[in-house]
């Protein structure tokens, strides 16, 4: 993005292409994003899973997912989140709770393929593991030796509990075992299960060991899943880092250390580096006008917020409040494309398309769930209408130009939003 006016943002066409198309470019890792910590903050680099900075980038053998595959997987994730939210809100609205031996079939969400990854250290001495970064689920897990049943291929060595002097299984009787959504018991050892909406799953021992977040910072006795049976669409990541609001998540486990505060930033380009910070030091740049309440009564795991309106080109769209309050809104690091209630999306699409038509941009075919696309062939820079998401309390997310357009190619650059099917999805 070269610049931003009140009603439009300028976007360089060459900057539009996300991974995997730009994977041949070099990694742009600035010094400030390398592992580090201050007295009140621990910082880890975040990179795009398929971008040139990813430790997994060499593992693909040139077989990167297509945009259609990325968007189809994203739709799986969105659907599974909606199924889970529907289940939990139905329960909270007064359905009698049964004494259930089994837990909800979907304890997490489909992973998708457009996720970002971070590298963690685990064990003593610490091994390095690149894991999927997920604010939409709680339990952290990695594939483990001896991989009793099945493991998918991963880029790094499997975590081997026998080589860690600080590893211990958690017993079935331990309170921590009760924190799991899906649990079992074998020989007195607590078993965990996570199953995602696309059929991917991981099962194994619920254990504890030292988690290293930076060269200076470690969490002793961190509880995680040591996966002995793992199948699914994990790419070649070693596992997953759960950052939700549930008891097993990293921010909740490390609450005493970091005060339940963390922050992340995703870079504009797939060749860039973002960060994941833990601790109160993440906060100084956030003024009250940039914050919105976390609506914790809506359900577990997810970070619910109150979306109240949308501006396109600086103008507030006429969307009744009930359109947003009927369904609610979550912020999810693992979903690629923002999903809006049908009426809100329809209004956004109409205003966006109208502004693009005024500028004379040529339309292009739809790309999977993205139905408002343009052909920018022959252009070096385009002017697109600004899009702002407005939240309870007055916070505004003025979407960066790199987040307004999702481009498969120069000739197929689309509005990076999609509509839900039903008003109450």
């Amino acid at each position: 993005a070269a610049g931003r006016g009140h009603d439009h943002a300028m976007l360089r066409v060459e900057d539009m292409l996300p991974a995997p198309s730009s994977s041949s470019s070099s990694c742009d890792m600035s010094r400030e994003h390398k592992h580090g910590a201050t007295s009140s903050r621990t910082r880890m680099p975040i990179v795009h899973r398929h971008g040139p900075c990813s430790p997994l980038a060499d593992a693909h053998d040139g077989k990167l997912p297509s945009h259609e595959e990325i968007l189809a997987a994203d739709q799986n994730r969105a659907k599974s989140i909606q199924r889970r939210v529907s289940t939990t809100t139905t329960v909270s609205r007064g359905k009698p709770k049964r004494n259930r031996p089994s837990l909800p079939a979907s304890s997490g969400s489909a992973l998708g393929t457009g996720n970002y990854v971070v590298t963690i250290g685990l064990g003593t001495p610490a091994g390095r593991y690149t894991v999927v970064f997920d604010t939409g689920s709680d339990t952290t897990w990695v594939q483990c030796e001896p991989c009793v049943v099945v493991c998918y291929k991963q880029q790094e060595k499997l975590f081997d509990p026998a080589r860690s002097s600080t590893y211990a299984n958690i017993s079935c009787a331990a309170p921590a075992c009760s924190d799991l959504y899906i649990k079992g018991c074998s020989g007195g050892h607590c078993l965990y299960g996570v199953q995602y909406g696309d059929g991917s799953y991981s099962i194994g021992f619920f254990a504890m060991d030292t988690l290293t977040l930076s060269s200076y910072d470690a969490i002793k006795g961190f509880r995680f899943g040591c996966g002995e049976r793992n199948e699914g669409l994990y790419g070649e990541a070693a596992g997953l880092l759960g950052l939700g609001r549930g008891k097993t998540s990293l921010p909740v486990q490390a609450y005493d250390k970091y005060g339940g505060v963390f922050a992340h930033c995703f870079p504009a380009r797939s060749s860039g580096t973002g960060y994941l910070d833990f601790g109160p030091g993440s906060l100084p740049a956030v003024s009250a006008k940039l914050t919105t309440p976390m609506l914790v009564d809506n359900g577990p795991t997810f970070y619910y917020v109150g979306l109240t309106g949308i501006r396109v080109g600086g103008k507030l769209l006429s969307i009744p409040q009930s359109v947003f309050t009927t369904s609610g809104t979550i912020v999810d690091s693992g979903t690629v494309i923002t999903r809006l209630p049908p009426a809100a999306y329809s209004s956004l699409r109409s205003a966006f398309a109208s502004a693009m038509a005024e500028r004379g941009y040529k339309k292009a075919p739809a790309l999977s769930l993205l139905d408002t696309c343009y052909d920018f062939t022959g252009m070096s820079e385009v002017a697109i209408p600004t899009v702002s998401l407005l939240f309870q309390g007055g916070a505004s997310l003025d979407v960066h130009a790199s987040g307004i357009i999702y481009a498969a190619s120069v000739s197929q650059a689309c509005l990076g939003f999609a509509g839900n099917k039903e008003d109450d999805d």
Partner: peptide, 30 residues
């Protein structure tokens, strides 16, 4: 449920404070 996805969060510092129950959006954070 509506979902704010990672494409729209690019370059924003997204801050989660579980204790204070707030989510913050800082522009131009990376």
């Amino acid at each position: 449920v509506g979902i704010v996805g990672n494409t729209q969060l690019k370059t924003f510092g997204v801050v989660y404070d579980i204790g204070k129950k707030v989510v913050g959006f800082c522009p131009g954070a990376c």
